[in-house]
């Protein structure tokens, strides 16, 4: 537990490396909602589909070889659907998620991304506060 931050930092460096490979190899921004939205629109090229295949397939292979990592997903089906819809609509409307705005945009000091990241962080923290400490769910 005490070394969780070290795994976090190591994982974060790998995520940064992945985004740097995508940028310097191909010229694309490694924003997951953007890549996914592009695939749904039919505007993303094969490289985007390959990115998503790696994002799903490599963790799947590691989980198969070494076992799946801990995952506690306690939200009720209603919350899962409501949350999924909000994430889907919100990330496309706001043109980015934690990776596109939070990693790629913040590191570029894009004003739009700084504002978006601040907004979704505050909105998410408020939501958790209301759910856990006001309503008392999860």
């Amino acid at each position: 537990m005490e070394i969780d931050w070290l795994y976090g930092l190591a994982g974060g460096l790998l995520i940064g490396l992945a985004a740097a490979v995508y940028l310097h190899g191909l010229g694309f921004i490694a924003g997951i909602s953007g890549i996914l939205g592009g695939v749904l629109n039919g505007t993303t090229h094969l490289t985007g589909i390959a990115f998503l295949a790696g994002l799903i397939g490599v963790p799947a292979a590691i989980a198969l070889a070494f076992g799946a990592p801990a995952m506690t997903l306690t939200a009720s089906p209603v919350l899962l659907v409501a949350g999924g819809l909000a994430v889907g609509i919100g990330t496309r409307m706001g043109a980015g998620c934690t990776s596109g705005h939070g990693v790629c945009g913040l590191s570029r000091l894009s004003p739009r991304s700084v504002v978006a990241t601040g907004t979704f962080m505050v909105a998410a923290a408020l939501t958790v506060f209301v759910m856990r400490h006001v309503i008392g769910v999860a």
């Binding site: 939200a75 889907g88 998620c97 998410a124 939501t127």
Partner: peptide, 8 residues
């Protein structure tokens, strides 16, 4: 909206 869903 994204933050709301993320937090839920």
């Amino acid at each position: 909206l994204f933050g709301l869903g993320w937090g839920l």
